[in-house]
C-alpha cells in the first residue's frame, strides 16, 4: 500500500505537476509573447485554434491531478499540513496552500475566461461579444501571471519540504 501511495502517488504528483507548471510557463514565456508577433503577421489563428485549446485541456486536468495526488501523498497528514500543526509542516503547508490557490485560479478564473476568448464549449456556437472577450482576456492574463508568480515560491517550498534541501534551508 505504501508503495502505491508514496511511490506511485509521488511519481504521478510530480509528473502531473511538471505538465501543469510546464504548460503554465509555456503560456507565459512562449505563447503570450509569440501571439503578439503572430497577430501582426496574421498567423495567430493557427495557435488559438489548434494549439491553445489542446494545451488548456491538458493544463486544467493536470492541475486537478497534481492536487489530488498531492493530497493522496499527504494522506492523514493533510489537515496538519494545511493547518501548520507544527514547524515540520511549515514548508509543505505553504507549498500546498500555494498549489491550492493556483488550482482555484485555473478552474475559477483562467479556464472560464479562456473558453470565452477561444470560443470553446458553450461559446463555440454562441461566441461572446468583443467587449466580453476583451474583459475575459485581461482577467485570464492576470490570473495566469499571478499563477506564474506563485509557482516560484510554490516550487521552492515543495522541494524544500523534504530531504537534504529541507535540512539545508530549515535546519533540523
Amino acid at each position: 500500500m505504501d508503495l502505491i501511495i508514496y511511490g506511485l502517488g509521488r511519481w504521478l504528483h510530480i509528473g502531473s505537476g511538471i505538465l501543469w507548471i510546464g504548460l503554465l510557463w509555456y503560456f507565459n514565456f512562449v505563447q503570450v509573447p509569440g501571439l503578439k508577433g503572430a497577430a501582426a503577421d496574421g498567423t495567430a489563428a493557427g495557435i488559438t485554434k489548434h494549439i491553445a485549446p489542446r494545451a488548456l485541456e491538458l493544463f486544467r486536468w493536470a492541475s486537478l491531478s497534481t492536487v489530488l495526488f498531492g493530497a493522496l501523498i499527504l494522506g492523514k497528514q493533510l489537515p496538519s499540513a494545511l493547518l501548520f500543526a507544527n514547524k515540520a509542516y511549515y514548508p509543505i503547508g505553504i507549498g500546498a496552500w500555494l498549489g491550492i490557490i493556483m488550482f482555484l485560479n485555473v478552474w475559477g478564473l483562467i479556464w472560464p475566461n479562456q473558453k470565452k476568448i477561444l470560443n470553446l464549449y458553450q461559446y463555440a456556437t454562441n461566441p461572446a461579444s468583443d467587449e466580453v472577450k476583451n474583459k475575459a482576456r485581461r482577467i485570464a492574463f492576470l490570473a495566469s501571471r499571478t499563477n506564474t508568480m506563485l509557482s516560484i515560491p510554490m516550487l521552492f517550498f515543495m522541494v524544500a519540504s523534504g530531504g537534504l534541501f529541507r535540512r539545508a534551508f530549515f535546519g533540523g
Binding site: 507565459n28 514565456f29 509573447p33 514547524k87 511549515y90 514548508p91 505553504i94 492576470l142 501571471r145 499571478t146 506564474t148 508568480m149 506563485l150 509557482s151 516560484i152 515560491p153 521552492f156 517550498f157 534551508f169 530549515f170
Partner: peptide, 30 residues
C-alpha cells in the same frame, strides 16, 4: 503605477520576493 505582472521580469521578481518573504517568515517562526 504599472502592474508588475504585465511584464515577465516583473512577474519573476515578484515571485522571488514572495519566496524570500515567506521563507524568512517561516524560518524565524520555526
Amino acid at each position: 503605477m504599472k502592474n508588475p505582472l504585465d511584464s515577465i521580469w516583473g512577474t519573476i521578481i515578484c515571485g522571488l520576493l514572495l519566496t524570500s518573504v515567506l521563507y524568512n517568515f517561516i524560518y524565524f517562526l520555526s
